[in-house]
Every structure is written in structure tokens, then in C-alpha cells.
């Protein structure tokens, strides 16, 4: 029942959707992610009416592809973000998004150390939220622009009235800092 689902993480909801085709879990996940997906699409410049339709398409894909979600390898938010990002690219331009194929025989495989992702995804998620919250406002702001506005850095620089070099170095500082936090100490 929905009440029993309420306290569950998005990861758990996705697993329930994949395993049990659980529509209550799906409704709850939509309640959480639908308005955020819409905000994401709007910020990237997609018109409101099209954004509503794209939110539906993203969530339909979440429903149909839930069985490919692996909670040991990614967080639900990451997995949903990549689906939304790809939908946005499809909608915004005719370009394809080239991606490597994990099954490609020519792929250079992960190194043994990297394959051992021992930190729990839930812990990684909490650590990431903390790390973002601790960023200086100017860095966090640029980071959101880089993810949400679908703009090259030069356009972000113009928009902010900053030299391109400043935008790049602030972003780089933010990224290096976040990567250090994620790697854990």
C-alpha cells in the first residue's frame, strides 16, 4: 500500500517498480521526481507544454526500463538524470549523443581497483549532497548553470558578465573539490 511505501528511498521505489511492476511505487516516484524533471527541462529552455510531455516520456521510460537499474552501480537520481538528459538532447536538437558501448569488445575494461565500488550508494548520495551544500555560492551557482542551462561556458560567462577564464577556473575548483569529497578521506 502507498502508506508502506512512503518512507522508502527512490532506489527502493525503483527496485519495487522493476520487480513487482508496482504502480503505487511508481506514483510515489512521480510525485517526487515529476516536478523536478519539469523544472530541469524548463531551465534548459524547453517550452512548458513540451516539458509536460517530456516529463511523461521520461517517466514512461523509467517504468519500462526499471529492470536495467542496478542499485549497486548507481543512485536512482543519477539513473533518472541520465534518462532526462538524453530526452532533453533528443528534444532540443537533432544531434545524436555518442556513447561508448559497455559490451564493446574494443572497450578497455575497468581496472580491478576501480571496479570495487565499495562505498554504499546511499552513503555516496549523502556525501555528495553535503559536498554540494558546502561549495561557495558562486561555484554552486555556476555548477547549476552548467547542468541545467544547456549552454556552452562562453554563453554562461557572457550571461554572468564574467571572463570565460573565471568561469572555467571556478567550475574547475568546484569539480576538483567535489571529486575529493566523493573519493572520501
Amino acid at each position: 500500500s502507498p502508506a508502506a511505501l512512503d518512507g522508502r528511498s527512490s532506489d527502493e521505489l525503483l527496485v519495487a517498480i522493476a520487480r513487482d511492476r508496482d504502480k503505487d511505487a511508481f506514483g510515489l516516484l512521480f510525485g517526487r521526481m515529476g516536478p523536478r524533471l519539469k523544472a530541469y527541462l524548463l531551465r534548459s529552455g524547453i517550452a512548458p507544454s513540451q516539458a509536460d510531455e517530456l516529463v511523461q516520456e521520461v517517466m514512461l521510460m523509467v517504468w519500462h526500463r526499471a529492470d536495467t537499474f542496478d542499485p549497486a552501480r548507481a543512485m536512482a537520481s543519477t539513473w533518472i538524470f541520465t534518462i532526462a538528459r538524453n530526452k532533453r538532447i533528443d528534444a532540443a536538437r537533432r544531434d545524436r549523443r555518442p556513447e561508448f558501448d559497455p559490451e564493446d569488445p574494443a572497450l578497455v575494461p575497468d581496472q580491478p581497483a576501480a571496479a570495487d565500488r565499495s562505498i554504499e550508494q546511499a552513503e555516496a548520495s549523502a556525501r555528495l549532497r553535503d559536498a554540494i551544500a558546502k561549495l561557495p555560492a558562486e561555484q554552486a551557482d555556476l555548477l547549476r548553470l552548467a547542468y541545467f542551462e544547456d549552454q556552452p561556458h562562453s554563453a554562461i560567462a557572457r550571461h554572468k558578465g564574467l571572463p570565460l577564464g573565471t568561469v572555467k577556473s571556478r567550475l574547475r575548483l568546484a569539480l576538483e573539490r567535489l571529486r575529493r569529497e566523493l573519493a572520501g578521506s
Binding site: 523536478r36 530541469y40 537520481s77 543519477t78 533518472i80 532526462a84 549532497r129 554540494i132 547542468y147 566523493l182
Partner: peptide
């Protein structure tokens, strides 16, 4: 960086 995107999406 994709998990960063996910975290920002959750916080939007």
C-alpha cells in the same frame, strides 16, 4: 559527474 547531475536534479 552524472551522480552530481542526479544530486542537483533532486535539489532543484
Amino acid at each position: 559527474f552524472e551522480s552530481l547531475g542526479g544530486a542537483l536534479l533532486e535539489a532543484i
